[in-house]
């Protein structure tokens, strides 16, 4: 019983972490049709913001906000310098963001060195409940993932800006004809999606070993998640993260983490092949 609960909690934790990474990715992909392979490095930048700012003993909440704003700004700059020029060349956006990811990672290595950096969790006492103990910081991450996802959905579905953005997703030309400044929507979307990646990195930093390779580990599961879930709607990210994250944790608990990755990635490829629109996507692209 306790074992099941523990596996369940681990699965929930991995799912929500993955969701945290995916949500920014799916917004950029779904809205702008840009595959952002630099997403892992935005995650990385968020984590290193924590490393840097914790040296000045700032409150953790301030650090999180700073990470979001800082990475959003980086995203804005990259959008302006690179992405803007290649919107119409879909495949080239993958390559360009891949190059950006290489450069950003190397920049981090130059600035901080290739080794892992220490970060301190703001609180770490284990919490006892239902007969098991679980890290309070993990529970905090899970809570944050839910809050951030909910906020993102509120913004997308309940605000005027969200309406405009969804209008641009649905029909870019029509939105533009109706007087929407699609350029500005793109810019804000990319910055927002990047910022979310930074925030995810900052939240995860105390739990992970913060080193220049930490973003790569999330890249493949995150992309498979959003493809499995379907990119036509941000809801797809929830589906995808649940399936990839959930099955990965369960298989990992039964066999080993490596076998879990092999099995889950292979199954994900099959799902993507059979349902290119994803589980949540009814819309034909």
């Amino acid at each position: 019983m306790e074992m099941t609960l523990l596996i369940g909690l681990d699965a929930a934790s991995y799912i929500l972490t993955l969701l945290l990474v995916c949500i920014g990715l799916v917004i950029i992909f779904g809205m702008m049709n840009v595959i952002n392979l630099a997403h892992g490095e935005f995650f990385l930048l968020g984590a290193y913001t924590v490393v840097l700012l914790q040296q000045y003993a700032l409150p953790f909440a301030v650090i999180l906000v700073t990470a979001f704003v800082f990475v959003a700004l980086i995203g804005l700059i990259i959008e302006e310098l690179v992405i803007r020029r290649i919107y119409h060349r879909f495949l080239d956006t993958i390559l360009a963001t891949w190059g950006i990811s290489l450069a950003l990672k190397q920049l981090v290595i130059i600035l901080f060195g290739p080794g892992s950096q220490p970060t301190v969790a703001p609180f770490a006492e284990p919490i006892a409940m239902f007969g098991i103990t679980y890290s309070s910081y993990r529970l905090f991450i899970m809570g944050m993932a839910i809050v951030i996802t909910a906020t993102t959905f509120l913004i997308l579905f309940r605000t005027r800006w969200g309406l405009t953005a969804r209008g641009v997703i649905a029909n870019r030309q029509m939105a533009s004809c109706l007087g929407v400044n699609t350029r500005r929507v793109d810019r804000v979307t990319f910055a927002f999606g990047s910022g979310l990646a930074g925030l995810a990195g900052a939240i995860m930093a105390p739990l992970m070993s913060v080193d220049p390779q930490m973003g790569v580990g999330f890249l493949v599961p995150a992309f498979l998640s959003i493809l499995v879930g379907g990119i036509a709607s941000p809801l797809g990210a929830i589906w995808g993260a649940s399936i990839i994250g959930g099955s990965n944790s369960v298989v990992a608990a039964i066999w080993t983490p490596v076998i879990a990755q092999i099995v889950v990635f292979s199954l994900a490829i099959v799902v993507i092949r059979l349902m290119p629109d994803g589980l949540a996507g009814r819309k034909k692209r």
């Binding site: 595959i35 879909f90 495949l91 993958i94 493949v220 992309f223 498979l224 493809l227 490596v258 990755q261 092999i262 990635f265 292979s266 994900a268 490829i269 993507i272 092949r273 290119p276």
Partner: peptide, 20 residues
């Protein structure tokens, strides 16, 4: 599959092979 999907699937296939 085409375009980006193909790219991501082949990337995953390479990662799977490496793990194997």
């Amino acid at each position: 599959l085409y375009g980006a999907y193909f790219g991501i699937v082949t990337l995953s296939a390479a990662v799977i092979a490496e793990r194997l």
